[in-house]
Design a protein around this nucleic acid. Structure first.
Lengths: 206, 206
DNA sequence: CAATAAGGCTAATCCAAATTAGCCAAAGGA
DNA sequence: TCCTTTGGCTAATTTGGATTAGCCTTATTG
């Protein structure tokens, strides 16, 4: 019964590396440990498997968003934590986000598959942008707004601050997806980024 | 004789939208205006077409790098121009980079194809990172170093400055690739980013 | 303990897409 | 002008991969 489950897992695995069009059902079957025709006892076609993965993605999206926004808290709650904030807190938060995105197995495959398939499917394109750009940006914008009001950081356009904080995280992430062997180097760069970001936006008269 | 040329163009066109595995030679042929078998008078296989495109990419890489680094100048030369620099100059430069990447037809298709194929081919992954991350970053780091030494900007780690300057450009670019209809909104955001970046790194005692 | 459903297999089948064969017309140069 | 090359075509052919047919074993359940 968890063959059905395993099919989705292995298919996602393959799709995220090669893309739908370059994966053969026989490969999926082999990865699962069965023969190709047996797949059809569970899904009625290759496309059907793909759709099932998509559906799951869309469902698990909330789940994922929840775990991303740490502890299930919302931006305001986080900002309270950050009342004590300084550099180290921000580093911890940014690196945490980065490491989660990078190493969570499902998140990584999900992201890679969206990357590969984004231009063939507008729905995927939208999902991608929402999940990896719009949502994190608006979440962090809210956070920076809080920090600004609390007099911790300079009050600047928090939407732009979020962009400047998050875009390097995003970019380094895509680099690690391509070249995992550079993770150490790049995560060091990320930490430096956050520290410098923090210093620059810190209020002078502390 | 420029059928051979046209085949590459149309193939790149299709590959960049659908990915290698989802494009049929008949589609390429149709786009060119001939029948599929005629393709084989020019290239010996579908893979051969793909390889030819790759080769061209690798060759044209220098060409492209040249036009990217504006006017064929190098970072030092640009930095001299930037001796008079301020916000507007930086905006002009950043937006120029963005608009070039976004609208140059070849650059866009090239980038999309690399995006789609990056995980199937380590060579492509490397090329992608080099062209859209490492090179721009080191170019701009050099520029910021200059600006720092000339006392125009604060002296900070210029590698990190480059990351903070460029990563938003990169991220907004990928968003536009996915959702071209948001170009206006996103390029406005970009301009705000650069202005805020400029103000933040500007030396106080002007 | 039948009867049925689940889920696996092998052996077809089907089909679409890549590639080859072989013909033909136009171009162009000896 | 003839002969060769170039580049197109239609009509096979091949191939590989998705899907179906149909059988078998092992549970499950009435």
């Amino acid at each position: 019964m968890n063959t059905k489950r395993k099919i989705l897992d292995e298919a996602l695995n393959l799709f995220s590396e090669k893309g739908y069009g370059n994966v053969y059902v026989a490969q999926i079957a082999e990865a699962v440990g069965i023969k190709a025709p047996s797949l059809y006892k569970h899904y009625k076609s290759k496309q059907d498997i793909f759709s099932a993965i998509l559906d799951e993605m869309k469902c698990s999206y909330d789940k994922q968003a929840a775990s991303l926004n740490m502890n299930g808290n919302n931006a305001e709650a986080d900002a309270e934590i950050f009342s004590v904030v300084s550099e180290d807190e921000l580093v911890k938060m940014g690196m945490g986000l980065f490491m989660y995105f990078l190493h969570d197995e499902y998140a990584q495959k999900f992201r890679k598959m969206l990357t590969i398939e984004q231009f063939r499917n507008p729905e995927l394109a939208e999902l991608f942008t929402k999940q990896y750009a719009d949502e994190p940006l608006s979440y962090q914008a809210a956070m920076f707004t809080m920090l600004g009001m609390n007099g911790i950081l300079k009050e600047q356009d928090s939407k732009i601050m979020a962009l400047q904080f998050y875009a390097p995280i995003y970019m380094l992430l895509t680099m690690c997806d391509r070249q995992p062997e550079r993770e150490a180097e790049l995560s060091k760069l990320l930490e430096q980024h956050i520290r410098q970001f923090s210093r620059i936006y810190q209020k002078e008269e502390s």
